[in-house]
Write a protein that binds this DNA or RNA. Structure first.
Length: 506
RNA sequence: GGUCCUUUCGUCUAGCGGUUAGGACGUCAGGUUUUCAUCCUGGUAACGGGGGUUCGAUUCCCCCAGGGACUACCA
């Protein structure tokens, strides 16, 4: 087998969505598994759809994901340039080559005329196909003399170049994921290869570049399956060896039907993009996994398992293991609905494995943004006790503010349930008791409280939960004396005093 | 409408002719905990329908139905 070379070839028409990320990921895994290379090529042959910032976004996304390319627009390489608009001059030669060998022809039909025909066919419940039958009656070189064609070209008439699809030919193709796929050429049309604006279409540019860049495997989304026959025919027309194809199943919407799309994220409350995206025209923003505080490793792990598994019951795979175990043969055939809960679960799993100091570092940023300055060592200790309780780093702040700030209010329900007539008196005694503790530690505080409770024949739950309300503001949170240990003696006593006063005043 | 792809618990999936159809997320119940969460244990829940082939089909074939993609001088 030739060297494995794959490509990821997005169009810079907007942010990369997670389906695209998964396609790139599978390309990457496949390449690395087989000791091959992966390149990033920008397919910007449609000038009208160009979105500024999209290319930068794509590169940044892969940087965040820690998926490196071996060659590409951003790093160059032996087959540069890697942007199709910069390769523009090259495609004409290949289009001409197909004309010369009879596999393509000039066509002069106007878009309006074709539109008209499509409409009238539709009205008659028929499908207009520009193919071996209809091409005989249309405005193209096949129906004109060489002189007429030359005259049109010389006079600067707008033209396109179309592929001359053979008549009634059965094409049998092989897809690594889907196996044998068979199509009859009569259902296909004479696709435009070269547009009147002087740019190639996707089909031409893609085939030419894949060939020139020595791509061995084309791994792409299933939306491209219908054009696989055209692409195979193109390789044949050029006399080139075609790469192997693998068409990945699509990522579907979690609720209803259809392909996962840009809008779904906001509606359903989860990002469909790796990074936050701000539309340069409208200013609209779309959430990103990075900004939602997912670990890139967790995000990748989740995505990898959406359509692939290694046949065992393992679900947590670090990147190295994904590379080691990945195979296209084990990629599923049917579309997968995206599930946010599972995504969160993956992040939870990765959070538990992470180093506390590292989490603390990131948490400090969140704290800082919220105007909280905390000691790094303290934050790390908080992380150690709190991380198992949350899915995301930032939740150690949003869900556990009491670890950094005194409660601002006291949950009425909890107070009603736990706060009794004699509680203020008990708290006053406890303040005294705690004040006398010289060796402030989880254990000593715990023992002191337990002794007090026993001596006064109080209920453990009653006392501890009242204290918890004063520490946290509600009936939740980690082990009480662990928390008190973290807070320190002074803060603990302050919280008891302040809280008791506030509740009494209610 | 046409073409192609696809179809196992609510979701992601294992299964590649003979299984009590397994796992994970979710959900429910119980346990652990001074609370909540985590965690642990257990339960719930699936082969779209109809024909074949076969001693035997979730598994192979055909038809239907559902779902998806494509059907542009967009990728």
């Amino acid at each position: 087998m030739n060297k494995v070379r794959v490509r990821f070839a997005p169009s810079p028409t907007g942010p990369l969505h997670i389906g695209g990320v998964r396609t790139a990921l599978y390309n990457y895994l496949f390449a690395k598994k087989n000791g091959g290379e992966m390149l990033l090529r920008i397919e910007d042959t449609d000038q009208t759809r160009f979105v500024p910032g999209a290319e930068k976004y794509i590169i940044e996304a892969f940087h965040w994901l820690n998926i490196p390319f071996d060659e590409g627009v951003h790093i160059g390489g032996p087959f540069a340039p890697y942007k199709q608009s910069e390769r523009k001059d090259l495609y004409w030669k290949y289009a001409k080559m197909l004309i010369d060998n009879g596999n393509a022809y000039y066509a002069f039909d106007t878009p309006e005329a074709l539109d008209e025909m499509r409409k009238s066919c539709e009205a008659n419940k028929q499908t207009f196909i520009y193919n071996s039958i209809t091409r005989k009656t249309l405005n193209n070189a096949l129906n004109l003399s060489a002189e007429e064609v030359q005259q049109k070209l010389d006079s600067g008439s707008h033209f396109v170049i179309r592929f001359k699809m053979p008549e009634n030919k059965t094409i049998e193709m092989h897809d690594i994921i889907r196996g044998q796929v068979t199509v009859n050429t009569d259902t296909l049309d004479d696709k435009v290869l070269f547009k009147s604006d002087g740019m190639p279409t996707y089909h031409l540019a893609n085939i030419v570049d894949d060939h020139l860049m020595e791509i061995s495997h084309v791994i792409r989304g299933e939306e491209w399956l219908p054009s696989m026959p055209l692409h195979i025919m193109l390789y044949e027309a050029f006399g080139w060896e075609a790469p192997q194809f693998a068409h990945l199943p699509l990522l579907l919407r979690p609720d209803g039907n259809g392909k996962l799309s840009k809008r779904d994220g906001d509606r359903l409350g989860f990002p469909v993009f790796p990074l936050r995206w701000v539309d340069p025209k409208t200013g609209e923003t779309a959430r990103g996994y990075r900004e939602d505080d997912y670990f890139p490793e967790a995000f990748i792990n989740m995505l990898a398992l959406l359509g692939w598994n290694d046949g065992t019951e393992q679900e947590i795979f670090p990147m190295e293991e994904l590379i080691e175990k990945f195979s296209l043969e084990r990629v599923g055939k049917s579309g997968a609905k995206f599930n946010v809960e599972k995504a969160k679960w993956f992040n939870h799993k990765y959070l538990q494995q992470k180093d506390n100091a590292e989490i603390a570092k990131s948490l400090m940023l969140t704290l800082h943004e919220n105007g909280v300055e905390a000691d790094a060592q303290y934050v790390e200790k908080v992380v150690a006790v709190m991380k198992e309780r949350v899915n995301f780093t930032h939740e150690i702040w949003t869900e556990c503010r009491y670890m950094f700030q005194r409660p601002e209010s006291y949950d009425p329900q909890s107070v009603k349930k736990r706060w009794k007539e004699d509680t203020p008196q008990v708290m006053e005694n406890i303040v005294q008791l705690l004040t006398d503790i010289s060796n402030w530690k989880n254990q000593t505080v715990h023992d002191a409280l337990m002794n007090y409770i026993q001596e006064h024949e109080l209920s453990v739950g009653q006392v501890m939960n009242s204290l918890r309300i004063l520490m946290v503001g509600s009936s939740s949170g980690p082990d009480l004396t662990t928390m008190m240990d973290l807070f320190g003696k002074e803060e603990t006593i302050e919280r008891i005093k302040i809280g008791t006063q506030s509740i009494v005043n209610l």
